[in-house]
Computed example of a mutant assay.
Amino acid sequence: MTDGTRANQTGQRAERVIACMLRERGYSFERQAYLGKSIYSHKLYCDFFVSNIPEFPGGLIIESKWQGSGGSADEKFPYLVENVRQVFPCPAVIVIAGGGHKPGAVAWLKAQVDGEKVFAVLNLEEFLCWMNKGLSDPVCSSEGYCTGLAV
């Protein structure tokens, strides 16, 4: 197995963990949601578009960035941040995992947090804590349909 294949698989595992966390909380989400054109005018997708978190009535995007060892994933942070600022239709939380990101890159990424578009940069454990303590449960109807809006 090549290093690129291994990195792709471990990144997908991290995304599955995030999906499991979202399902456990009852949030509705779309994986690989199409957002439009990137800052380079290419098709742009996000890892997760979550539509029913009460604190984010216009939606929340979650981007998962895995790097298990030295590599170039963190060199793509500026591209991600510019897309978040210029293209994403709602706030984004960036989840970093794997422990292989360059410390300077993580510090730079965290410095980009504005609490609005780049809402937060969290590791997986911080993300779990934030979901458990910082977010309300979705409101669900008797038919099981959940929304982020209080009835």
Rank of each mutant, 00 (worst) to 15 (best):
C129D: 11
F48S: 09
G11H: 06
A97Y: 01
K110R: 15
L149S: 11
V81Q: 02
D137S: 13
D74L: 02
V17S: 05
V93Y: 00
P78G: 07
L22V: 07
F48L: 10
Y45M: 08
S136I: 07
D74R: 03
K110M: 08
D74H: 14
P54G: 06
L44T: 05
A19N: 07
V151K: 12
G148R: 09
A73G: 00
L128G: 04
S69A: 15
P103N: 06
I61Q: 08
G71N: 09
A19E: 14
K133T: 15
A111Y: 03
K37Y: 01
A107G: 01
L124T: 13
G100C: 06
N123S: 11
G71L: 06
E143Y: 04
S72R: 12
Q12F: 11
S41G: 00
G26E: 03
Y40Q: 13
G148D: 10
N8D: 03
G99Y: 06
I39K: 12
T5I: 13
S38H: 08
V81L: 04
L135T: 11
Q86I: 01
K102V: 01
Q9I: 14
G58F: 05
W66S: 11
V84G: 04
Q86Y: 00
F56Q: 10
I18Q: 03
P91Q: 03
F48D: 06
L22E: 08
Y27I: 12
I62E: 05
N83T: 09
R25I: 07
G70Y: 11
G26W: 09
R23W: 06
T10K: 15
K102F: 04
R23C: 05
L135N: 05
K37V: 02
R13D: 12
L60E: 03
G148C: 10
G148E: 10
S28W: 05
E63N: 12
I61W: 07
G68L: 09
T5G: 07
F77V: 02
I53S: 03
K65P: 07
W130T: 09
K65A: 08
Q32M: 03
A33W: 03
D3T: 03
D114W: 08
F77K: 03
Q112G: 04
M21N: 01
E75N: 14
G58K: 13
S72K: 12
V87Y: 01
P89G: 11
F127R: 03
V151L: 13
C46P: 04
M1H: 10
G58H: 10
G98V: 10
A14W: 02
A111C: 07
D47W: 01
A73I: 11
L109I: 02
A33V: 02
V93L: 08
M21G: 00
D74K: 03
V139P: 00
S136F: 05
V113P: 02
V106I: 15
I96M: 06
G99M: 10
N8V: 00
G100Q: 08
Y34R: 14
E15W: 00
Q32E: 14
P78M: 11
K110N: 04
G11N: 05
S72A: 09
K117Q: 13
W130P: 02
A105P: 00
P103S: 06
K37M: 12
I53T: 06
G148N: 10
E143H: 03
F56S: 09
G70N: 11
Y79I: 09
Q9W: 11
A105G: 04
K65T: 00
N8Q: 10
A7K: 13
V17L: 13
